[in-house]
Design a binder for these strands. Structure first.
Length: 462
DNA sequence: GCATGATCATGC
DNA sequence: GCATGATCATGC
């Protein structure tokens, strides 16, 4: 079947809305458990009737349209999110470096996408998943500007002979995700002897989430940069430009200039300050288009006069059962550091020896950062691995007197373990306990990035 | 001075 | 009620 116009193709795709994959699978691929193929292949072969291929051209090449079948799900709060990143074409490191964005393999194949969204449900047989929505998607101009920069970031890294150091967190919307069963999926690269993991261009999960929310729930985000501005500057430059005039001021002064109430204890102050300086006062940071699509999470850093944070940086509490059952490759912590870009909002105290509440806090600037792949797969993995080992075997828990209270000590990785991260308690009171896979009970624990490591990151060394 | 453990306060 | 960000307190 040849589709002569976009309308014809879209009509066919829309006719699938409401159908289950079982309904659409006329060749019985789903019922044959040995036939692996994804749901996308069933749609390609059985519904649109063309042979599955791995050509460089789009699936419907006369129309320049690439077909993608992609899942969404509901998160624990009941909101819909993309279930995964959208994996596009594999990057041929040897060839891609000779292209410009306009001649790139990414743009050649994926400039127009026919997206068919289906809802993934836990525990439900995949033949019962339903196609919810089919749309013809072209990139909005402002997204395209960011994606162009992303493509250049990826390709420049290959040009620098660093294909083996690529990481999804390097970029904003368009990522280079690993594609291949395991570490044996290695490929050659043009400017280094080192073999690199096979990777594919992909639209990040956070970007896909914005699409499902927009097209299925009609939810819109608030953007901070217009496409005309993005043609001249990168998103990062725009961000720094917005904040630079305030560097060196105290938070009190910034609050006054922006007409917002300064309350040291309010957890909402920093997000309010950020949205205010971005010109969209009061917008939740998760509703800022560029932050949400690129999965940018902010973290506050308070430096001491010696330019080192006194405190390490905490993340969410550890789910030990999850750590114990997951493999490293699929672990949540690895995924988090690979896919999250951090926006460090940096402040500094200029006095020492006083309580924080009595010290003036100065705005020092911003830093966008994502953890390098080598650190994720070495130091973070080491901490994860050692912790996993201990909670499976035995944690050495001791109770000691400190003043009048009994404190609980453990032998989880400490700050001197490898210089990057450590495990440390974080509870609300002495009763905040958690069960370990081995049956022991300990105070709730959290993953921390060492304050010294953060200081090195800020110095640009990591 | 710093590492480590404890716990407060806010906000959902 | 709980998770999280933030900060405090002790003792080596």
């Amino acid at each position: 079947m040849i589709y002569n116009t976009e309308e014809e193709l879209l009509e066919k795709a829309r006719a699938a809305e409401g159908s289950t994959f079982g309904d659409l699978d006329k060749k019985g691929r789903l019922s044959n458990s040995r036939s692996k193929g994804g749901l996308g292949q069933i749609i390609e072969e059985s519904y649109f009737g063309y042979k599955v291929n791995s050509n460089a051209e789009p699936d419907f090449k006369e129309l320049g349209i690439e077909l993608k079948v992609t899942p969404f799900k509901k998160n624990t709060k009941g909101k819909i999110t993309a279930k995964e990143r959208l994996v596009l074409n594999i990057i041929n490191y040897m060839k891609e470096v000779d292209y410009t964005f306009d001649t790139s393999s990414f743009w050649n194949k994926n400039s127009k996408l026919l997206l068919m969204f289906y809802q993934w449900l836990p525990g439900v047989d995949r033949s019962d998943f339903k196609v919810t929505k089919s749309i013809l998607f072209t990139f909005p101009e402002s997204d395209l500007q960011i994606i162009k920069k992303d493509w250049e970031t990826i390709v420049n890294k290959v040009r620098d002979g660093k294909a083996h150091e690529l990481s999804e967190g390097d970029t904003n919307y368009l990522g280079a995700c690993t594609k291949g069963a395991n570490k044996s999926s290695l490929r050659e690269q043009p400017f280094s002897e080192e073999l690199a993991m096979q990777r594919a261009f992909s639209l990040k999960q956070s970007y896909m989430t914005s699409l499902v929310r927009k097209f299925i729930k009609n939810e819109e985000l608030v953007s901070i940069a217009k496409s005309e501005e993005l043609i001249k500057k990168s998103f990062e430059e725009i961000l720094y430009d917005r904040f630079n005039p305030y560097i060196g001021l105290t938070v009190r002064e910034i609050a006054q200039k922006q007409g917002i109430e300064y309350n040291q204890k309010a957890k909402s102050f920093i997000p309010l300050m950020i949205s205010s300086l971005l010109g969209i006062k009061g917008t939740k940071l998760n509703d800022i288009e560029e932050f949400s699509k690129a999965n940018i999470q902010f973290k506050t850093i308070r430096l001491e006069p010696n330019n080192r944070p006194r405190e390490s940086m905490s993340f969410k509490n550890i789910n030990f059962n999850q750590w114990f059952t997951e493999s490293w490759e699929e672990s949540e912590i690895r995924e988090t550091f690979m896919s999250t870009k951090f926006l460090f909002v940096i402040f500094k105290y200029k006095e020492t020896g006083k309580q924080n509440s009595e010290r003036e806090l100065y705005f020092e600037g911003l830093k966008l950062w994502n953890m390098p792949m080598r650190t994720i797969d070495k130091e973070v993995k080491e901490v994860w691995q050692e912790t996993k080992r201990l909670v499976g075997e035995e944690v050495k828990i001791e109770y000691k007197k400190r003043g009048n209270t009994l404190i609980e000590t453990n032998n989880f990785p400490k700050k001197d373990f490898n210089g990057v991260a450590h495990i440390r308690p974080k509870g609300r009171n002495g009763k905040d306990k958690v069960n370990l896979p081995n049956g022991q009970i300990v105070t709730k624990q959290c993953f921390w990035l060492n304050n010294n490591y953060i200081a090195e990151v800020l110095d640009g060394n990591k």
